[in-house]
Amino acid sequence: MSSPIPPPEPTALESAKAALERIILDPTYHDLLAIVKAARNGAVYGAKVRFPHALVMVFLFRPGTFSEKASLVFRATRTHAQNLARFAVIYKLVCYVLKHLGSRGGPGKEGPYDTLLAGLVGGYAVFGGRGKRSGKIPSVNQQIVVYVFARVVLALARLAVKPADAAAGVAGGLPFVSRPDVSARISHYAWPVFAAASWGAVMHLFRYHPEELQSSLRSSMTYIYQQSDSWDGLRNFIWHNK
């Protein structure tokens, strides 16, 4: 009988891949590797979200040559991706440090305010600064912070009127307004009032203080509500804006 053929020796590339997988799957390195993964995810998400938005807004509403517009799209995409990646790294890193320094639950356990502190540090470091040359707040950063702020306000508004559920151990929101009957009534009417107030305010600001609105919002509103007031023939009434 012939002796069995031994399996081929793994190549250097396969050995390196196996070693890398052992490190990645080792729980000892999980928290540190999560920081690297967060940076990757932040950059990818930022690019995916910003690129189509910048492409549409710049090419539809911004003047300039093709190369100038392409440069604006690239810069906005890069800035958004970099900022989300930087914030993810700082946030995860601060959470890691706080967790391993020890908190109310002791070293290795997350404290009740670790995420708040990490968010404060990341928000200040990444989104709290101004442009080095212009001294102005970057428009991309304004858009991200305003987006987050709007979601925070909506969440806090919902939390304020959230009824208590003793059986589930869920605390209610603010006194009186979180009573089930009052909460249901506020929830029913709050959104129409909020939507009406928001649009009324932004249209008033656009009419009398347009310079205070964000540039992308101002550009789109100029296109829709201001440039629609003028034309000199069928060509720029239907087929072209100007």
Rank of each mutant, 00 (worst) to 15 (best):
V170H: 10
K242C: 11
T77R: 03
P7R: 14
F59E: 02
A195G: 01
W199E: 04
P192L: 08
A166I: 09
L120C: 10
A34N: 15
K136D: 09
V121K: 08
E21M: 13
Q142D: 03
D31V: 01
L154E: 11
G129T: 05
V121S: 11
K17F: 00
E110L: 10
A190I: 02
V145S: 07
D232E: 11
A184I: 02
L13M: 10
P138L: 13
S216N: 12
D232Q: 12
V97Q: 00
T65N: 13
L25C: 04
G172R: 09
A54M: 09
L60G: 00
A12I: 05
R207Y: 05
A47Q: 09
V49H: 04
L84C: 05
G64E: 06
D26A: 07
G233T: 03
H100T: 15
Y96E: 03
I24S: 08
W239H: 11
S15M: 11
H204D: 12
S216C: 06
G102L: 07
I137M: 12
C95G: 08
P138D: 14
K162I: 00
P63R: 12
P4M: 04
S228G: 01
V58C: 02
S139E: 15
G128A: 09
V182Y: 13
G131D: 15
F194K: 07
H30K: 10
G42L: 10
W199D: 02
I224P: 00
S15W: 01
P175N: 07
F237N: 02
P163K: 09
N41L: 13
F59L: 06
S228H: 08
H100I: 10
S2K: 07
K109C: 01
Q142Y: 08
V161C: 14
G64L: 12
G233E: 02
A164M: 03
V58Q: 03
R151H: 13
E21S: 09
H30S: 04
H53F: 15
A184P: 03
S2V: 04
D31I: 01
V58G: 02
R104Q: 08
G233F: 08
M203P: 01
Y45R: 02
P27Y: 15
V58K: 03
W239I: 10
H80P: 00
Q214W: 12
R78V: 11
Y189S: 11
A85D: 04
D31N: 14
L234I: 08
V121H: 14
D26G: 03
G42V: 06
V140P: 10
Y225C: 12
A197C: 04
L93N: 00
S183Q: 09
Y225M: 15
A88L: 06
A150S: 10
R185G: 01
A70L: 15
P175A: 04
Q82M: 13
